[in-house]
Design a protein around this nucleic acid. Structure first.
Lengths: 246, 246
DNA sequence: TATTGTGAACCTCTTCACAGCT
DNA sequence: AGCTGTGAAGAGGTTCACAATA
């Protein structure tokens, strides 16, 4: 068990910041595509719908890459964020459960960039096994050990029905997959050394109905603006409708 | 603009709590299905992988429904959570973008329970328009106004490519859809009265590579366990690997 | 005795405000 | 003059610890 203190590079980066880094990165890429070379925290803040001080504090966790009076060099910032997020490495992904969701993930831009690469697709349905999704052939889940030996997946994505999610997770863990991204509506158990994150597509919907239910019939609580992801336990950006005066 | 203070029922419920309510609810439903009538905060906590005090504080926001020495009546609790989340009402959903993701959402359990109902499916692709997904026929996005008049969607789900996400959102807002759930990797702009939440499927992946990158080469920062959703900005449950002594 | 409900302490994240640098 | 980087204050959320109570 590693002690406090020894860190990889620089300070510890708060989780709330980590969740926003991909958003900044996407915005920076767009600015670069439009030939903008430098960017101020204010410009980034407007595009990401956050406070400029938050942008500066977030970026300060990566180091001091800004220039006072000028702003940040967009290309440099992209490189730093990539490095912090590990996007400069190769991350083979194994997706288990090739239904509509698994297929959507396999085809999505986000799963084939930033160092990620769909290395393996697995399913238990004989009608699906053997078919191609993009350039990858779906293998049978029973071949997981073989597939793992070939691809050494860094992330296992669970996109199966909830009923088999734990079983699939156990299999992924047993072949040494160090990170699990769970899309099933079920709380999973993993050993302490495995990184687990959850994305529940319907929880967001229920959170929306909560706010909608309140804002309707005599309610007052406002909407919530959200930045980012769902996973984790959440992190985010909130804003009440009836905002308090300064 | 409503003032501070007047509330729907009871106190204001913290967002972090709202995100966990669906998880408690699912666990309670499972316990009820197994004929368990009462449940302690400790039991709920173990199953949801959270602290028992957090469960009690979360539930206390709904009122005092527990019995000291005994625990909570599971059925009563489900009813209370349903009411808080608005699951006792009807929430027609319009999904725009019937690719793999849209189809996955349309078929998912979470979009056809807790009061939700897939009321309309919309796409711009002539090859998709007219096809059936479940029991709903896909309509052309240009017919949005007509569809909206029939169904009055309470939630608009954006499952389109990022490039058209803002345009689609504007259309949904213009026909009076009060809540938008965005799955596109793009920061959206909506008027203040519209509730917006975001689910970015790839941000979680990037957060995972961040932790993986650190735990590997000389790093120290531990994994993050996550409860819940992805959307929003997250909420969550954190645990460091090298935990500090008490 | 078992377990809730909650004040208080603690911790994390956000925002302000401004010194300091270019 | 403009903008970053950050200390300090503030807000929100979590956890502890225990009095209240069935």
């Amino acid at each position: 068990m590693a002690g406090e203190g020894s860190e990889f590079r620089g300070r510890r980066i708060p989780e709330a910041t980590v969740v926003r880094l991909p958003v900044y990165q996407r915005i920076l890429s767009e600015l670069l595509a439009g030939d903008q070379r430098t960017v101020s925290s204010e410009q980034l803040a407007v595009r990401a719908r956050v406070n400029a001080a938050k942008v500066r504090k977030d970026l300060s966790h990566l180091g001091s890459f800004g220039t006072r009076g000028t702003g940040y060099d967009a290309a440099l910032l992209v490189a730093q964020i990539d490095r912090a997020l590990g996007a400069d490495r190769d991350w083979p992904i194994a997706i288990v459960g090739i239904g509509n969701l698994g297929r959507a993930l396999a085809n999505s831009e986000g799963f084939s960039s930033h160092g990620f690469r769909v290395g393996a697709l697995l399913d238990a349905d004989p009608a699906v096994v053997g078919t191609m999704v993009g350039s990858v052939r779906v293998r049978h889940i029973d071949d997981l050990a073989t597939v793992a030996a070939e691809e050494r997946p860094a992330v296992g994505v669970v996109a199966t029905p909830a009923a088999v999610a734990q079983e699939v997770t156990d299999a992924l863990v047993s072949i040494g997959v160090p990170s699990i991204l769970n899309f099933a509506s079920r709380v999973l158990t993993v050993p302490p050394h495995v990184v687990l994150r959850n994305v529940d597509l319907s929880i967001e919907l229920q959170v929306m109905s909560f706010y909608q239910a309140r804002s309707g019939p005599g309610g007052v609580d406002g909407p919530v603006s959200s930045l980012g992801v769902v996973g984790r336990d959440g992190t985010g950006e909130r804003r009440r409708a009836g905002r308090r005066p300064r």
